[in-house]
């Protein structure tokens, strides 16, 4: 099992944070900004698609999709923060993990740090370190050495 990369968006579509661990293939888009826009646009579309096409009332809405190579896990807070974590296919439902990422890392090291401006890309080193540590210690992070 492994974790590829993580995007955090705010409710205005600003990419607050991006980090990658085991990403082997890059999108080929020159600017990272463009990739963020594409990602946010796709998530936005999937969300509204899922809401419209659903035959009954949704509880959590869109939570993940899979391809033959990876799984894209999505979690949104009621305040509109979006956490997108790409993993390999063996990972189950990691809603709890993403919620903890929000409550134990984002809230603790960004919201409670008055020097971190909200709605701007996160620059705090403490946040980066804690996030990296948290994700690397997840059971789903275990990488095969090959």
């Amino acid at each position: 099992m492994t974790v590829f990369n993580l995007y955090i968006f705010d409710r205005n579509g600003t990419c607050l944070y991006y980090v990658e661990w085991n990403r082997k293939k890059h999108s080929g888009i020159a600017s990272q900004e463009e990739e963020f826009k594409l990602m946010y646009g796709m998530i936005f579309s999937i969300k509204s698609f899922v809401n419209r096409i659903s035959p009954s009332d949704l509880k959590d809405g869109f939570s993940s999709f899979k391809t033959s190579r990876y799984k894209c896990n999505f979690y949104e807070t009621p305040s509109g923060l979006k956490f997108i974590l790409n993993t390999d296919l063996n990972v189950g439902n990691i809603r709890d993990v993403l919620h903890q990422l929000y409550s134990n890392i984002y809230v603790e090291y960004v919201v409670k740090n008055p020097l971190c401006e909200l709605g701007q890309p996160i620059k705090s080193d403490l946040f980066k370190t804690k996030l990296d540590e948290y994700v690397r210690n997840l059971p789903i992070f275990a990488t095969k050495t090959n």
């Binding site: 305040s79 919620h99 409550s103 134990n104 984002y106 809230v107 919201v111 409670k112």
Partner: peptide
């Protein structure tokens, strides 16, 4: 308030 709501949502796990 705009910061407190995040702490609130994280701790209470209240949905929309």
């Amino acid at each position: 308030g705009i910061r407190l709501i995040e702490d609130f949502l994280a701790r209470s796990n209240v949905g929309r």
